[in-house]
Design a binder for these strands. Structure first.
Length: 907
RNA sequence: GGGCAGUUAGCUCAGUUGGUUAGAGUAUUUCCUUGACAUGGAAGGGGUCGUUGGUUCGAAUCCAAUACUGCCCACCA
């Protein structure tokens, strides 16, 4: 077969992926082998994979493929997340483009559009995962809104409610006026912005004096219900018991005193608006202040504002400033940097707002989740870089607001009767039974179960004395936070909630390792741990309840300038285009090569180029080996006696041991570097050159077989990182029987290596390099053969490597000499001297200079060693092996200096 | 404001319990194309390890201070 000049990825990648799928290599069923389980962090169903995902998926695939080739039953579960608010925002946007207002639709009609959107765009990420070569089990695709998954989420909600861990309450929450929904604290992103501080005068009631306050939000003035100053602030002591008049609306509000106020900030007086600021809200609670909510859900001013009703909040701010100015109440405005909260999903400025929401109590769930990481059995990689963050969050955790005023998501299973009371149950029927059974408004778990068993009544009399039927029950309009479904991911992808104790959950749970971005440590990682520990009974050992044993945090992918990759900056490259341009293996290589765990990665296309070049190198190495195939002669020399074979065999064994360690420590980028250098330098640059037969000469059969074996082993080691090309080359190398695919080939046991042989190989490399360097500098053309005389005390060293040496430096033959050859081109390596003979005069002056430089270096080195050894305290305190090492250094350096001085004298 | 990381060659990064005068890749320089590969080969130059002080016989490595960068948390109007 004719092999093309360069490797062409597009021609092979799809073919091999189809083959692997066809062979069902990625499909897993429980069996007698140990399981290696990974669940994919489900990407948003509407999104595309960005470089961050690419990094995560690549890391997971490397670990999964490595496990699969190491005797584990590897199972990688793919899937996607419905991402309630992000997706809903996109669907609303799509409807808008079609001229449809979401509010004009019924809920079921909207859901139809949403599913249409999901079906259309949801496939993109799966396509990308395929193109990247990910070995996921496609029979196990999960989606957080699948029927079973939905049920699981509802069950957990009901269960937590019955245990008293979920409650409904009025709280100040983060409100997204664009999406018109509550947000959790974690969904708010703060950014530093240049704001303004307005100084406003409030008239003191019944006096002709004013008190001045500073505010960033003059549009909330209409909601003021107090002015607050620090009780120790002497400027305001006279105001005790007095009131102020709120400008524009002329409402009388008390002046209160609280140490919360910082006298040094602004004027030392604070306007208190309990409805629109979390601190003011807390002050209001403490001092019993009324709450005047002056904003509507969409961020416009409400009727309670009295003025500017219906105006958008930022327009209103301008207007209020104008009006204050007109009334002479605006003293000044000054620039003031401030941090403003934005909705992570819609980028709208978040509004603190009081509303009734559902919450999960976090304190008691946090405790075991903290212990599972600080005291084991969960290990976070790298090291404990993130342990402190994790710990801090869990120790200071606040209740989790889980209701969202959206339609796309799991609808909260709470049912309201016309009198306003509610029951929590998975279905309307069950809720009705609870109503029919009577009892308290919030039945405890035991009562609820008994009630369900009762025969349902036709009608129930409400607390208001009116009767109602099951049909009158109204379900809560809100849906649950996306993370309230994601936190069940490692359990419910194996149907652990909907079909407890099934074979899959028993076999695959807990998963082996979670690979994810550090940015979702609270959103997701911590909560999955809580869910696992909550869901599985305490009677099980903790090792069985945690969702994963290891957590591997990947860093954030940034662009070359160090900026975060984002759609708005347009600096996130398209994955499919990159694969098109460089090939999937090269993309995987490029993203892995400089990506130590937990460190940010500066994405640079030149790394992908390096990956593509590596592909090409592998391809051409194969071509070389294949060229020899036709010239193979029966084994003459005996491969085992060939130094190159001995050396590479040992090299391979030692690197394999290194790689094992690197995998265990999750140092994947190091592992790839090690492999890259093993293949490019040791195998291609040295080994292949050493065994290469002369032009049109025969290839020794034994050496050839060994070379093919080495090549095969290298492909196998590299396969987890670069699956496509390695599989392709494995098959091009020689005919394979059906099912003999690299993808499922098990690694053989790691052999021992021969340290002296390795050292000799290093010496050989060093001598070759030194002689080539001398040839270069003396401008001896590569084709000019030299006479090579070696002056050494240990001739045996060069017996084994002589043949290789002669060929690699283009010498006619190798000759040993006892005498110093004066005036010859001389190379010194260690204590040995090499004389390069050539049939013409060479200028030795530059060589002399070189050697002189070397001498200066060695003398400096000798001095530093001497200094150490003549230091009494060093000799007293240092470990014996260190001292011995220094003594050896001293002797070696002295010997080298002698040789060099001799050489110089001879020149 | 609090906490956590990082600072090593032009650039991106290794450097695992302190012990050869600091290593890769990339970029760069010189030379080399009918013989696997120019997406290549051979060879070279390039760093007082952010700064200052301390511990030690010995510090890129440990400690303290400091500067800069990044991240997380808290959210003073």
């Amino acid at each position: 077969m004719e092999l093309s000049k360069n490797y062409i990825p597009s021609a092979t990648e799809d073919r091999w992926y189809a083959h692997w799928l066809n062979k069902r290599y990625f499909n897993s069923r429980p069996d007698g082998r140990p399981a290696f389980t990974v669940v994919i962090p489900p990407p948003n169903v509407t999104g595309v994979l960005h470089m961050g995902h690419t990094l995560n998926e690549t890391v997971q695939d490397i670990l999964v493929r490595k496990a699969r080739m190491s005797g584990y039953n590897a199972c990688w579960v793919p899937g996607s997340d419905h991402a309630s608010i992000a997706t809903e925002a996109k669907v609303v946007g799509m409807l808008k483009e079609r001229g449809i207002d979401k509010n004009s639709l019924t809920r079921p009609a909207f859901m139809e559009y949403a599913y249409e959107w999901k079906d259309k765009y949801g496939g993109i990420i799966y396509h990308q995962i395929r193109k990247l070569g990910c070995s996921v089990d496609w029979d196990r695709v999960s989606f957080t809104m699948d029927k079973d998954y939905y049920d699981a989420v509802i069950r957990i909600f009901v269960d937590l409610y019955q245990k008293g861990l979920i409650y409904r309450g009025a709280r100040m929450i983060n409100w997204d006026p664009a999406a018109r929904t509550a947000l959790s604290d974690e969904e708010v992103e703060y950014r530093e912005e240049q704001g303004k501080l307005y100084y406003v005068k409030y008239k003191i009631d019944g006096e002709d004096t004013y008190i001045e306050v500073a505010t960033q939000r003059p549009e909330t003035i209409m909601g003021d219900t107090a002015i607050c100053v620090n009780p120790s602030d002497e400027r305001y002591l006279g105001l005790k018991g007095k009131s102020a008049i709120v400008p524009l609306v002329n409402r009388k509000v008390p002046i209160i005193f609280d140490t919360y106020v910082d006298p040094a900030f602004g004027t030392g007086a604070l306007k208190v608006t309990p409805a629109h600021d979390i601190n003011d809200y807390n002050l209001g609670l403490k001092h019993g202040l009324p709450i005047i909510d002056t904003l509507n859900e969409d961020g416009t001013l409400s009727a309670a504002a009295e003025i500017l009703v219906g105006m958008e909040r930022f327009a209103a701010r301008k207007k209020v400033v104008e009006m204050l100015g007109a009334e002479g109440l605006l003293v000044k405005e000054e620039a003031h940097p401030t941090r403003i909260g934005f909705s992570q999903r819609t980028s709208a400025v978040v509004e603190p707002r009081i509303s009734t929401q559902w919450f999960v109590k976090m304190k008691e769930m946090a405790e075991p989740a903290l212990k599972a990481v600080t005291e084991g059995p969960i290990t976070i990689h790298p090291g404990d870089k993130f342990l402190a963050t994790y710990k801090y969050w869990l120790e200071n955790v606040k209740d989790w607001c889980i209701s969202r005023q959206l339609w796309w998501g799991q609808q909260i299973p709470a049912w309201y009767s016309p009198d306003g009371s509610l029951r929590v149950a998975a279905t309307r029927e069950e809720a009705w039974k609870l109503f029919a059974a009577g009892g308290g408004q919030r039945p405890a778990g035991q009562e609820a179960e008994n009630a369900v068993g009762n025969r349902a009544a036709e009608t129930v009399v409400g607390t208001d004395g009116k009767t109602f039927t099951m049909e009158d029950l109204v379900q809560d309009e809100d849906v649950l936070d996306t993370w309230f479904s994601s936190w069940l991911w490692p359990i419910e992808v194996f149907k652990g909630v909907t079909h407890p104790g099934n074979a899959d959950i028993n076999y695959y749970y807990p998963t082996s390792v979670l690979v994810t971005g550090q940015d979702i440590i609270f959103f997701w990682v911590a909560r999955m741990i809580m869910a696992g520990l909550y869901y599985f009974p305490d009677s099980l050992p903790i090792e069985k309840r945690i969702p994963f044993r290891d957590v591997y945090f990947t860093g954030m992918v940034r662009d070359k300038q160090g900026r975060k990759m984002s759609k708005s900056l347009g600096n996130s490259p398209d994955l499919l285009e990159l694969i098109e341009k460089y090939g999937a293996d090269a993309v995987r290589f490029g993203i892995m090569i400089s990506s130590p765990a937990g460190n940010d990665l500066l994405f640079d296309e030149s790394a992908l180029e390096q990956g593509r070049n590596f592909n090409n190198k592998l391809w051409n190495a194969l071509k070389l080996v294949k060229m020899w195939e036709g010239r193979v002669q029966p084994e003459v020399e005996g491969a085992a006696d060939h130094f190159a074979v001995q050396w590479f065999e040992s090299r391979l064994a030692s690197v394999r041991a290194e790689l094992e360690k690197l995998y265990t420590d999750f140092r994947l980028s190091e592992a790839l570097k090690t492999l890259y250098s093993l293949i490019w330098d040791d195998f291609c640059s040295w080994y292949l050159e050493w065994v290469k037969p002369g032009f049109e000469q025969a290839m020794d059969g034994g050496v050839y077989a060994k070379t093919v074996y080495f090549y095969e082993e290298l492909m196998q080691l590299l396969h987890p990182f670069m699956p496509f090309i390695t599989e392709e080359l494995y098959h091009l190398l020689r005919e394979r029987t059906d099912g003999d695919d690299l993808c499922v080939r098990e690694f053989e046991a790691i052999g021992a290596f021969d340290a002296p042989v390795l050292a000799q190989g290093e010496l050989l490399k060093e001598v070759i390099t030194a002689i080539r360097d001398a040839r270069n500098k003396a401008q001896i053309k590569p084709k000019e053969a030299i006479q090579l005389h070696i002056q050494t005390h240990v001739q045996a060293t060069y017996q084994a490597i002589g043949t290789i040496l002669v060929k690699q430096v283009n010498a006619q033959e190798i000759l040993f000499t006892q005498d110093t050859q004066e005036g010859a081109l001389t190379v010194v390596v260690g204590k040995d001297k090499f004389y390069l003979g050539i049939d013409r005069v060479v200028d030795l002056s530059s060589q002399k200079e070189e050697i002189q430089k070397e001498l200066v270096y060695l003398k400096g080195f000798l001095e530093s060693v001497n200094k150490k050894l003549s230091n009494e305290r060093f000799v007293q305190n240092a470990k014996p092996e260190v001292i011995n090492l220094e003594r050896k250094k001293l002797a070696d350096t002295e010997a080298k200096i002698r040789v060099i001085e001799e050489t110089l004298a001879g020149l």
